[in-house]
């Protein structure tokens, strides 16, 4: 019976981009993520919200295996992208990360020129056959990130010399440049001022057309503004997941209700 239900469920969800099933994450002896099941829809924005330390960033980092760099971290359960288990021993994390790009909390451009920042990914993945190919990739990535007009005349200046908001958009452009299918964003606006935040949010909304975006955020307003679906994490458990509107207007769980009304966290 149970088996049948599972199969049925899987069939219903074949159109989801990422499907996580009974994911457990351990840091040494600490059980950081417990039994997370989630389906992430393609070409949409999914927001992870929850109080600090609830495991939302940890779960995000399991989606492109960035947790591999932490020795004591252990992941169980299955995470499938397009039906392929990313923790399969056959999977090379390097290829996975080309498919699932990431933008971090603090803007972290390479201490190189703006051009080299964008061109680095395509170069190591051999995406450009010639210099002009590479120029095209750099230009189109910057255009998609809405940064082209601001930087087209100073591509050889260091990326670290730009403002915080520009740096973060540069990092998004850098992630786009390797043509990923999924972009993970770990609190991308927490180090930015409201104006820069608005620009990045606008950008995220535009990128939704072509990419599957998962964003972790501390700001519930941001989640409400940019996402189509929202997942609420608490103490390592996925409490509730659904269309953003439902989560914010009609939460099913008491804890979600308490959190979004500001009673804790």
């Amino acid at each position: 019976m149970n088996q049948m239900l599972n199969t049925e469920r899987a069939n219903n969800m074949t159109d989801s981009k990422i499907s996580a099933n009974k994911v457990q994450v351990y840091y040494g002896d600490t059980h950081a993520i417990k039994d997370v099941d989630i389906e992430i829809q393609p070409r949409s924005v999914t927001a992870f919200i929850g109080p600090s330390g609830c495991g939302k960033s940890t779960f995000l980092r399991t989606l492109n295996r960035m947790n591999d760099t932490i020795d004591i971290c252990r992941v169980e359960g299955s995470i499938k992208i397009d039906g392929e288990d990313i923790y399969d021993p056959k999977v090379d994390p390097v290829q996975l990360r080309a498919k699932v790009g990431m933008v971090f909390q603090k803007p972290n451009p390479f201490p190189k020129s703006i051009y080299d920042n964008i061109a680095y990914g395509p170069r190591i993945h051999g995406l450009a056959r010639s210099k002009s190919d590479l120029d095209d990739i750099v230009a189109s990535s910057l255009q998609k990130a809405g940064l082209w007009e601001e930087v087209k005349n100073r591509l050889d200046e260091p990326g670290t010399g730009m403002s915080g908001g520009q740096q973060q958009r540069l990092c998004i452009a850098r992630a786009i440049a390797v043509s990923p299918e999924v972009i993970l964003m770990d609190e991308p606006c927490s180090a930015l001022d409201p104006i820069a935040t608005a620009k990045v949010e606008e950008l995220i909304d535009e990128l939704r057309e072509n990419y599957t975006i998962v964003i972790v955020t501390h700001s519930m307003q941001q989640a409400a503004r940019v996402s189509q679906r929202t997942a609420f994490f608490h103490l390592g458990i996925l409490v509730e997941e659904g269309p953003t509107e439902d989560i914010f207007t009609n939460p099913k769980d008491k804890r979600t209700q308490d959190y979004i009304t500001g009673r804790f966290g």
Partner: peptide, 27 residues
């Protein structure tokens, strides 16, 4: 060398060695 540089390189799909030799070592 700040760990964010390593993250950045790994995030665009560089291997660990590429991250170290292209970004960490020069810094």
């Amino acid at each position: 060398v700040p760990p964010s540089i390593r993250d950045a390189a790994l995030g665009v799909g560089a291997s660990k060695m590429q991250a170290i030799f292209h970004h960490v070592l020069p810094l």
